[in-house]
Design a binder for these strands. Structure first.
Lengths: 212, 212
DNA sequence: TCCTCACAGTGCAGTGAGTGAAGTGAAATC
DNA sequence: GATTTCACTTCACTCACTGCACTGTGAGGA
């Protein structure tokens, strides 16, 4: 087996072993040594693949985040930045929703303090990525930083609500997120436009600009 | 000195010692023993007051959260629930903004991974509290749980953006949050109503109801 | 083919966070 | 004044995580 394959296989075995043990006996009651043993490697090796015990629950966070950042930077300039970001987030949700593995994770989050903290923290990585992207488009001054942060936080807040409803009640997260985004950026008075590209959104940043 | 006073004094001494050491030499480079020694107690005592090293940065989180929950439950029934929650959050921000101690914390959050995680997690406590409150008002079924979670997440997302802008750029968080809330719940087409009590908001939950 | 380097994984020793249990002394209660 | 409560201490322990020296194997060049 090639080196690269071998490493990837070990990593996946560790992640699966961790998920198996976490769900079976709880996160706190599972030691790193057990996880590693379940994957057929030593405990020391675990930390060659994951920086912490809890991070094995999010094995693809780093690569997902990087890919998301690249997709952000590929978004067209001069369009409706907010709607573009929302669309990208919905796409991200769609790709997550395909995986039953990832759905099981949402049950775990409720069980362990460490997982809850890490889950909350990973979300902030996405918020920061979106905020940085919007600051790059809108301008790097206090007012636009605020606007970018607010839009980013709200966008991720909606995505998370959709994912929570998926994990808890089985609601389709793609449909949910799409509707929530549409509702957020669409004027409640504007009627029943179901498109995700709301006209008013592009006026948000300038209005929040130096006036603050 | 009375027992209760003594305990409170120790707790505060620990929190202050922790903040002093964290800012001076960094969170990771500070041991619990140092913190305890700086407060004149033993390391074991630290854990009688705080469940983790990082939690000393948020010494009043538990009491704040509880008070917030009580204030939520005291909100009038039958009014505009969303606007009421927003007002409550703005009040919370106002009381935080009075304390320079709490502002210094936002600099710390950027520095330590553990603090970032805990900070992200504490926010979720508030989200959960708001969501639980709204579920109690709107109904405990999947559609209303989703609506409640979405509104709660968005409300906290906005509050956090205001607090971040305060810590980073010194923007008045009360004014910022008020404006952001007004902008969010107000229709962009509705003109310049500066009130925080938007008429459309109360239609949000029923519209998102069984239709999903 | 052989040699060398890179690298996945191991074993070991150490630090430090966090916990449980038993004990001490002072405040609270009777 | 006797007893109980409780903040705090001391000790012993588990376990997450790290640095370091080491091994074995696959990759690539001479």
């Amino acid at each position: 087996m090639k080196r690269e394959e071998r490493r990837a296989a070990t990593r996946q075995a560790l992640a699966e072993s961790a998920m198996r043990l976490f769900t079976a006996q709880g996160v706190e009651a599972t030691t790193v040594e057990e996880i590693a043993h379940g994957a057929g490697v030593s405990a020391r090796t675990f930390f060659l693949h994951f920086p912490s015990k809890a991070s094995a629950v999010f094995p693809d966070h780093a690569s997902n985040l990087q890919r998301f950042g690249e997709e952000l930077s590929r978004l067209p300039d001069g369009g409706d930045d907010v709607a573009d970001v929302c669309r990208l987030l919905v796409e991200g949700i769609r790709s997550q929703a395909d995986s039953q593995f990832r759905r099981g994770r949402y049950g775990l989050v409720a069980g362990s303090e460490a997982i809850r903290e890490l889950d909350a923290r990973t979300d902030r990585d996405y918020e920061d990525a979106v905020a940085a992207h919007l600051v790059g488009r809108w301008g790097d001054d206090p007012a636009h930083r605020l606007a970018a942060q607010a839009v980013a936080n709200v966008a991720l807040a909606v995505a998370r609500a959709a994912l929570v409803a998926w994990g808890r009640d089985g609601l389709d997260p793609v449909a949910t997120a799409s509707r929530l985004y549409a509702r957020l950026v669409r004027s409640p008075l504007a009627g029943a436009a179901d498109d995700l590209r709301p006209a008013p959104a592009e006026h948000l940043p300038p209005r929040m600009g130096p006036g603050l």
